[in-house]
Design a protein around this nucleic acid. Structure first.
Lengths: 146, 146
DNA sequence: TTGAATTAGTTGCATAACTAACTATATGTC
DNA sequence: GACATATAGTTAGTTATGCAACTAATTCAA
């Protein structure tokens, strides 16, 4: 086997999640330090509901790029925390519409602020053009494998 | 809260693991289709042992960016699969040196080939300069949070 | 209008992650 | 030499992921 294969392999370390894991860990830590007891995965669901309340679980799957069982269980846990509520759709009873609770509303500004701070820390020394280019590359990678 | 906060938030979807998850899933699928029953996490440990056999668990933590409990269990599972063996160090008995088995050696070329193919699919339409730039950005992000 | 196919969501099982608390060995200092 | 500290690794509990098999509701077509 050629050494070239190993050089290519190094890419995995960076394209495959090292930076993203670091961001997630930092944000999770910030939440905890401020006494906010939700996981970043739960937060990512809330994030999309803050943009638009009353999404179906399937719509949450699409928005978060997670699969159906993952959303089922995240919604389970968010319901236990009384942050969201499942409401069966009237038109199509297969569908659960997910609605935010009042408690979730109060989390919004506080956690958004932390998320922005974390992103600012993460992106220190990275220009807007670099960010855009990175996004474009990662989008192409995602599309290539979709 | 400003809309700007939500715009920044969009970055999470891409910097936070969507592309890397897609690559991991694809590689895992390729393994499975070729009857190779290891997970990509297990593979990532083997990958570093192929580069240098006989690393300690702590060295594997550093190489893979995983924490100690994660490596403990990955090595547990790799040992069950008879792909590696723990050997207590003679000089410092706290340390486990991890050695590849013969079975692991035969996996090397086959899985490396699949990893390269997967990367090629993932990186279709992405230039070498873009890859380098992306790596540099993700490295900076990682260093910012370290 | 009945029966097949599709869609939305759930459940079970295995693997993996993070945190915190733990054991065992080694080191360093008084 | 003995005790404090640091280091390597393990264990336990909770959360999350992927996959496959499942239920229930809806749609489509003969």
């Amino acid at each position: 086997m050629s050494d070239n294969q190993f050089k290519r392999g190094e890419l995995y370390s960076f394209i495959t999640g090292v930076a993203s894991t670091a961001i997630a860990r930092r944000l999770q830590k910030n939440f905890k330090q401020h006494g906010i007891d939700i996981t970043i995965e739960q937060w990512s669901v809330l994030y999309h509901l803050w943009k638009q309340d009353g999404l179906s679980q399937q719509e949450l799957c699409n928005a978060t790029f997670k699969d159906k069982p993952s959303i089922t269980r995240l919604v389970d846990n968010l319901e236990k925390l009384k942050l969201v509520k499942r409401v069966a759709s009237v038109e199509d009873r297969r569908i659960n519409m997910i609605y935010l609770s009042g408690a979730a509303a109060t989390l919004r500004d506080q956690t958004m602020e932390m998320a922005n701070q974390t992103l600012n820390e993460a992106l220190g020394g990275v220009s807007t053009e670099e960010i855009e280019m990175c996004k474009s590359v990662l989008q192409r990678v995602y599309d290539n494998l979709k």
